[in-house]
Amino acid sequence: MRFWGLRVGMLIALLLAVSMFTFGAMNLLGDPLFNILGPVAGDTENPENLAKIEAAKEQFYLDRPLPERYVRWLGDFVTGDFGVRFSASGQPPVSEVIKERLPRTLALSGMAMTFTLAIGIPWGVWSGSTSKKGLDRLSTGVAFFLVSIPNFALGVVLLYAVGFRLGWMPVRFDAGDPFWQRMHQLVLPALTLALGGAAVYQRLLRTDMITTLQEDFILMARAKGLSRRHILFRHALRPSLFSVVTLFGINAGAVFGGALIVELIFGIPGIGSLFVESIFREDFPVVLALVMILTAGFVVMNFVVDVLYSIIDPRVRQ
Protein backbone atom coordinates (compact mmCIF):
# COMPACT_ATOMS: atom_id res chain seq x y z
CA MET A 1 0.00 0.00 0.00
CA ARG A 2 2.83 2.35 0.90
CA PHE A 3 4.38 1.66 -2.48
CA TRP A 4 1.29 2.81 -4.33
CA GLY A 5 0.90 5.82 -2.06
CA LEU A 6 4.40 6.87 -2.98
CA ARG A 7 3.76 6.33 -6.66
CA VAL A 8 0.55 8.35 -6.65
CA GLY A 9 2.27 11.09 -4.67
CA MET A 10 5.05 11.26 -7.22
CA LEU A 11 2.53 11.33 -10.03
CA ILE A 12 0.73 14.32 -8.54
CA ALA A 13 4.00 16.08 -7.72
CA LEU A 14 5.14 15.64 -11.30
CA LEU A 15 1.91 17.06 -12.70
CA LEU A 16 2.11 20.02 -10.34
CA ALA A 17 5.72 20.69 -11.32
CA VAL A 18 4.84 20.55 -15.01
CA SER A 19 1.89 22.88 -14.58
CA MET A 20 3.99 25.40 -12.61
CA PHE A 21 6.77 25.28 -15.17
CA THR A 22 4.41 25.68 -18.10
CA PHE A 23 2.29 28.34 -16.48
CA GLY A 24 5.33 30.34 -15.41
CA ALA A 25 7.13 30.02 -18.73
CA MET A 26 4.11 31.05 -20.77
CA ASN A 27 3.42 34.09 -18.68
CA LEU A 28 7.00 35.25 -18.38
CA LEU A 29 8.13 34.63 -21.94
CA GLY A 30 4.97 35.71 -23.71
CA ASP A 31 2.84 38.80 -23.37
CA PRO A 32 -0.75 37.72 -22.74
CA LEU A 33 -2.06 41.26 -23.06
CA PHE A 34 -0.73 41.53 -26.57
CA ASN A 35 -2.50 38.30 -27.56
CA ILE A 36 -5.79 39.58 -26.25
CA LEU A 37 -5.78 43.09 -27.57
CA GLY A 38 -3.30 43.06 -30.43
CA PRO A 39 -1.27 46.20 -31.13
CA VAL A 40 -3.50 48.21 -28.79
CA ALA A 41 -1.73 46.57 -25.85
CA GLY A 42 1.38 48.67 -26.38
CA ASP A 43 -0.45 51.97 -26.60
CA THR A 44 -0.69 53.37 -23.09
CA GLU A 45 -0.73 57.02 -24.25
CA ASN A 46 -4.24 56.98 -25.62
CA PRO A 47 -6.71 57.08 -22.69
CA GLU A 48 -9.29 55.09 -24.66
CA ASN A 49 -6.81 52.26 -25.22
CA LEU A 50 -5.60 52.52 -21.66
CA ALA A 51 -9.13 51.87 -20.47
CA LYS A 52 -9.30 48.82 -22.73
CA ILE A 53 -6.04 47.56 -21.30
CA GLU A 54 -7.25 48.02 -17.75
CA ALA A 55 -10.51 46.25 -18.55
CA ALA A 56 -8.71 43.34 -20.18
CA LYS A 57 -6.30 43.07 -17.27
CA GLU A 58 -9.20 42.84 -14.90
CA GLN A 59 -11.15 40.42 -17.05
CA PHE A 60 -8.24 38.01 -17.47
CA TYR A 61 -6.87 38.61 -13.96
CA LEU A 62 -3.61 39.88 -15.42
CA ASP A 63 -3.31 42.57 -12.74
CA ARG A 64 -2.88 39.94 -10.03
CA PRO A 65 0.49 38.53 -9.04
CA LEU A 66 1.60 35.37 -10.82
CA PRO A 67 1.25 32.94 -7.87
CA GLU A 68 -2.31 34.06 -7.26
CA ARG A 69 -3.18 33.58 -10.91
CA TYR A 70 -1.59 30.16 -10.81
CA VAL A 71 -3.61 29.05 -7.81
CA ARG A 72 -6.77 30.46 -9.36
CA TRP A 73 -6.07 28.64 -12.60
CA LEU A 74 -5.26 25.39 -10.81
CA GLY A 75 -8.49 25.54 -8.83
CA ASP A 76 -10.49 26.03 -12.03
CA PHE A 77 -8.53 23.42 -13.90
CA VAL A 78 -9.14 20.55 -11.49
CA THR A 79 -12.86 21.27 -11.60
CA GLY A 80 -12.87 20.99 -15.38
CA ASP A 81 -12.90 24.70 -16.22
CA PHE A 82 -9.86 25.34 -18.37
CA GLY A 83 -10.36 29.08 -18.49
CA VAL A 84 -10.88 31.42 -21.43
CA ARG A 85 -8.78 31.83 -24.54
CA PHE A 86 -6.46 34.73 -24.92
CA SER A 87 -8.45 36.55 -27.55
CA ALA A 88 -10.55 39.67 -27.59
CA SER A 89 -13.74 37.83 -26.70
CA GLY A 90 -12.23 34.87 -24.89
CA GLN A 91 -14.77 32.68 -26.70
CA PRO A 92 -15.23 29.79 -27.07
CA PRO A 93 -13.91 28.62 -23.69
CA VAL A 94 -10.88 26.33 -23.77
CA SER A 95 -12.86 23.36 -22.45
CA GLU A 96 -15.28 23.62 -25.38
CA VAL A 97 -12.47 23.67 -27.94
CA ILE A 98 -10.82 20.66 -26.36
CA LYS A 99 -14.09 18.80 -26.03
CA GLU A 100 -14.51 19.16 -29.77
CA ARG A 101 -10.99 18.07 -30.73
CA LEU A 102 -9.94 15.50 -28.15
CA PRO A 103 -12.40 12.70 -29.08
CA ARG A 104 -10.95 12.55 -32.60
CA THR A 105 -7.41 12.12 -31.33
CA LEU A 106 -8.54 9.57 -28.75
CA ALA A 107 -10.50 7.64 -31.36
CA LEU A 108 -7.47 7.64 -33.64
CA SER A 109 -5.12 6.51 -30.88
CA GLY A 110 -7.54 3.86 -29.66
CA MET A 111 -8.01 2.50 -33.13
CA ALA A 112 -4.26 2.53 -33.70
CA MET A 113 -3.59 0.62 -30.47
CA THR A 114 -6.24 -1.94 -31.34
CA PHE A 115 -4.68 -2.41 -34.77
CA THR A 116 -1.24 -2.72 -33.21
CA LEU A 117 -2.36 -5.59 -30.99
CA ALA A 118 -4.56 -7.18 -33.64
CA ILE A 119 -1.73 -7.23 -36.15
CA GLY A 120 1.33 -7.59 -33.95
CA ILE A 121 0.32 -10.48 -31.70
CA PRO A 122 -0.91 -12.96 -34.33
CA TRP A 123 2.01 -11.98 -36.55
CA GLY A 124 4.51 -12.60 -33.78
CA VAL A 125 2.91 -15.89 -32.76
CA TRP A 126 2.81 -17.06 -36.35
CA SER A 127 6.38 -16.10 -37.18
CA GLY A 128 7.68 -17.64 -33.98
CA SER A 129 6.03 -20.96 -34.72
CA THR A 130 6.25 -21.28 -38.48
CA SER A 131 8.52 -23.79 -40.09
CA LYS A 132 8.52 -22.02 -43.45
CA LYS A 133 11.96 -20.46 -43.53
CA GLY A 134 11.41 -18.34 -46.63
CA LEU A 135 8.18 -16.74 -45.40
CA ASP A 136 9.71 -16.15 -42.00
CA ARG A 137 12.65 -14.35 -43.55
CA LEU A 138 10.26 -12.22 -45.60
CA SER A 139 8.24 -11.30 -42.53
CA THR A 140 11.42 -10.39 -40.64
CA GLY A 141 12.38 -8.13 -43.54
CA VAL A 142 8.97 -6.46 -43.56
CA ALA A 143 9.18 -5.97 -39.80
CA PHE A 144 12.58 -4.34 -40.13
CA PHE A 145 11.22 -2.03 -42.82
CA LEU A 146 8.28 -1.01 -40.63
CA VAL A 147 10.44 -0.45 -37.56
CA SER A 148 12.85 1.75 -39.47
CA ILE A 149 10.48 3.94 -41.44
CA PRO A 150 9.34 7.03 -39.52
CA ASN A 151 5.59 7.12 -38.98
CA PHE A 152 5.18 10.39 -40.84
CA ALA A 153 7.02 8.95 -43.86
CA LEU A 154 4.89 5.81 -43.70
CA GLY A 155 1.84 8.06 -43.54
CA VAL A 156 2.84 9.82 -46.74
CA VAL A 157 3.60 6.51 -48.48
CA LEU A 158 0.24 5.02 -47.44
CA LEU A 159 -1.59 8.18 -48.38
CA TYR A 160 -0.08 8.02 -51.84
CA ALA A 161 -0.32 4.28 -52.41
CA VAL A 162 -3.66 3.40 -50.77
CA GLY A 163 -5.33 6.79 -50.91
CA PHE A 164 -4.37 8.14 -54.31
CA ARG A 165 -3.17 5.20 -56.42
CA LEU A 166 -5.56 2.48 -55.23
CA GLY A 167 -8.25 4.87 -54.10
CA TRP A 168 -9.45 2.48 -51.38
CA MET A 169 -9.58 4.99 -48.57
CA PRO A 170 -10.73 8.56 -48.22
CA VAL A 171 -7.72 10.85 -48.15
CA ARG A 172 -9.14 13.78 -46.23
CA PHE A 173 -10.93 13.78 -42.93
CA ASP A 174 -14.37 15.25 -43.29
CA ALA A 175 -15.04 16.75 -39.89
CA GLY A 176 -18.76 16.26 -39.67
CA ASP A 177 -20.72 15.26 -36.59
CA PRO A 178 -21.23 12.82 -35.10
CA PHE A 179 -17.70 11.81 -35.95
CA TRP A 180 -18.09 8.12 -35.09
CA GLN A 181 -20.14 7.74 -38.23
CA ARG A 182 -16.98 8.65 -40.05
CA MET A 183 -14.65 6.27 -38.25
CA HIS A 184 -13.68 4.59 -41.52
CA GLN A 185 -11.83 7.76 -42.40
CA LEU A 186 -9.50 7.05 -39.51
CA VAL A 187 -8.47 3.62 -40.77
CA LEU A 188 -5.55 4.81 -42.86
CA PRO A 189 -4.04 7.15 -40.26
CA ALA A 190 -4.58 4.49 -37.58
CA LEU A 191 -2.80 1.95 -39.74
CA THR A 192 0.07 4.42 -40.18
CA LEU A 193 0.43 4.60 -36.42
CA ALA A 194 -0.10 0.90 -35.83
CA LEU A 195 2.24 -0.78 -38.29
CA GLY A 196 5.50 0.33 -36.68
CA GLY A 197 4.32 -0.80 -33.25
CA ALA A 198 3.00 -4.08 -34.66
CA ALA A 199 6.43 -4.79 -36.10
CA VAL A 200 8.00 -4.25 -32.69
CA TYR A 201 5.50 -6.70 -31.12
CA GLN A 202 6.30 -9.16 -33.86
CA ARG A 203 10.03 -9.00 -33.21
CA LEU A 204 9.61 -9.43 -29.49
CA LEU A 205 6.99 -12.16 -29.60
CA ARG A 206 8.83 -14.10 -32.27
CA THR A 207 11.92 -14.40 -30.07
CA ASP A 208 9.87 -15.25 -26.99
CA MET A 209 7.85 -17.78 -28.91
CA ILE A 210 10.87 -19.62 -30.24
CA THR A 211 12.23 -19.95 -26.71
CA THR A 212 8.90 -20.92 -25.16
CA LEU A 213 8.06 -23.53 -27.77
CA GLN A 214 11.09 -25.55 -26.69
CA GLU A 215 9.85 -25.84 -23.11
CA ASP A 216 8.73 -29.15 -21.68
CA PHE A 217 5.19 -27.99 -20.96
CA ILE A 218 4.68 -27.39 -24.67
CA LEU A 219 5.86 -30.92 -25.37
CA MET A 220 3.42 -32.08 -22.72
CA ALA A 221 0.56 -30.14 -24.29
CA ARG A 222 1.42 -31.57 -27.64
CA ALA A 223 1.57 -35.07 -26.25
CA LYS A 224 -1.93 -34.58 -24.84
CA GLY A 225 -3.04 -33.98 -28.40
CA LEU A 226 -4.12 -30.34 -28.02
CA SER A 227 -4.71 -28.39 -31.19
CA ARG A 228 -1.99 -26.17 -32.59
CA ARG A 229 -4.00 -23.03 -32.02
CA HIS A 230 -4.75 -23.96 -28.44
CA ILE A 231 -1.08 -24.60 -27.71
CA LEU A 232 0.07 -21.39 -29.34
CA PHE A 233 -2.45 -18.97 -27.89
CA ARG A 234 -3.23 -20.59 -24.53
CA HIS A 235 0.05 -22.14 -23.50
CA ALA A 236 2.81 -20.40 -25.39
CA LEU A 237 1.52 -16.82 -25.56
CA ARG A 238 0.84 -16.59 -21.83
CA PRO A 239 4.45 -16.47 -20.63
CA SER A 240 5.05 -13.59 -23.05
CA LEU A 241 2.27 -11.44 -21.63
CA PHE A 242 4.68 -9.62 -19.36
CA SER A 243 6.67 -8.27 -22.27
CA VAL A 244 3.47 -7.52 -24.16
CA VAL A 245 2.25 -5.34 -21.29
CA THR A 246 5.61 -3.54 -21.07
CA LEU A 247 5.49 -2.94 -24.76
CA PHE A 248 1.90 -1.78 -24.63
CA GLY A 249 2.79 0.88 -22.07
CA ILE A 250 5.66 2.23 -24.10
CA ASN A 251 3.74 1.93 -27.32
CA ALA A 252 0.68 3.75 -25.99
CA GLY A 253 2.76 6.86 -25.32
CA ALA A 254 4.39 6.63 -28.72
CA VAL A 255 1.05 6.18 -30.47
CA PHE A 256 -0.45 9.20 -28.75
CA GLY A 257 2.58 11.34 -29.53
CA GLY A 258 2.61 10.04 -33.09
CA ALA A 259 -1.10 10.77 -33.44
CA LEU A 260 -0.38 14.47 -33.09
CA ILE A 261 1.85 14.29 -36.17
CA VAL A 262 -0.10 11.80 -38.26
CA GLU A 263 -3.26 13.88 -37.77
CA LEU A 264 -1.60 16.70 -39.60
CA ILE A 265 -0.71 14.53 -42.61
CA PHE A 266 -4.27 13.32 -43.01
CA GLY A 267 -5.84 16.64 -42.12
CA ILE A 268 -7.69 15.44 -39.03
CA PRO A 269 -8.60 18.41 -36.86
CA GLY A 270 -7.65 16.89 -33.51
CA ILE A 271 -5.35 17.78 -30.65
CA GLY A 272 -2.22 17.89 -32.80
CA SER A 273 -3.40 20.65 -35.08
CA LEU A 274 -4.96 22.50 -32.16
CA PHE A 275 -1.65 22.37 -30.32
CA VAL A 276 0.28 23.76 -33.24
CA GLU A 277 -2.31 26.44 -34.02
CA SER A 278 -2.39 27.63 -30.42
CA ILE A 279 1.39 27.75 -30.22
CA PHE A 280 1.65 29.91 -33.31
CA ARG A 281 -1.18 32.14 -32.12
CA GLU A 282 0.36 32.17 -28.64
CA ASP A 283 -3.00 31.15 -27.25
CA PHE A 284 -1.44 30.12 -23.97
CA PRO A 285 -4.49 28.89 -22.02
CA VAL A 286 -5.11 26.34 -24.75
CA VAL A 287 -1.45 25.28 -24.87
CA LEU A 288 -1.38 25.01 -21.10
CA ALA A 289 -4.53 22.88 -20.99
CA LEU A 290 -3.20 20.61 -23.73
CA VAL A 291 0.18 20.19 -22.05
CA MET A 292 -1.58 19.20 -18.84
CA ILE A 293 -3.94 16.78 -20.55
CA LEU A 294 -1.18 15.14 -22.56
CA THR A 295 1.12 14.86 -19.56
CA ALA A 296 -1.62 13.54 -17.32
CA GLY A 297 -2.60 10.98 -19.95
CA PHE A 298 0.97 9.86 -20.35
CA VAL A 299 1.70 9.67 -16.63
CA VAL A 300 -1.54 7.85 -15.84
CA MET A 301 -0.85 5.40 -18.65
CA ASN A 302 2.56 4.63 -17.16
CA PHE A 303 0.92 4.18 -13.79
CA VAL A 304 -1.66 1.76 -15.16
CA VAL A 305 1.13 -0.26 -16.76
CA ASP A 306 2.93 -0.42 -13.41
CA VAL A 307 -0.26 -1.63 -11.73
CA LEU A 308 -0.70 -4.28 -14.40
CA TYR A 309 2.89 -5.38 -13.84
CA SER A 310 2.36 -5.97 -10.19
CA ILE A 311 -0.77 -7.97 -10.91
CA ILE A 312 1.09 -10.18 -13.34
CA ASP A 313 4.27 -10.36 -11.31
CA PRO A 314 3.88 -9.53 -7.58
CA ARG A 315 7.67 -9.41 -7.12
CA VAL A 316 7.68 -5.91 -8.63
CA ARG A 317 6.06 -4.51 -5.50
CA GLN A 318 9.09 -5.20 -3.37
Binding site: L14, V18, T22, A25, M26, L29, G30, G253, F256, G257, L260, F275, I279, V287, V291, L294, T295, F298, V299, N302
Partner: peptide
Amino acid sequence: SFPGIVLVILIIAL
Protein backbone atom coordinates in the same frame (compact mmCIF):
# COMPACT_ATOMS: atom_id res chain seq x y z
CA SER B 1 7.75 9.79 -17.13
CA PHE B 2 7.17 13.01 -19.04
CA PRO B 3 5.99 12.88 -22.64
CA GLY B 4 9.05 13.98 -24.59
CA ILE B 5 7.19 15.47 -27.51
CA VAL B 6 5.26 17.87 -25.29
CA LEU B 7 8.41 19.16 -23.61
CA VAL B 8 10.15 19.60 -26.94
CA ILE B 9 7.24 21.45 -28.53
CA LEU B 10 6.84 23.65 -25.50
CA ILE B 11 10.47 24.71 -25.25
CA ILE B 12 10.88 25.25 -28.96
CA ALA B 13 7.71 27.29 -29.12
CA LEU B 14 8.91 29.49 -26.29
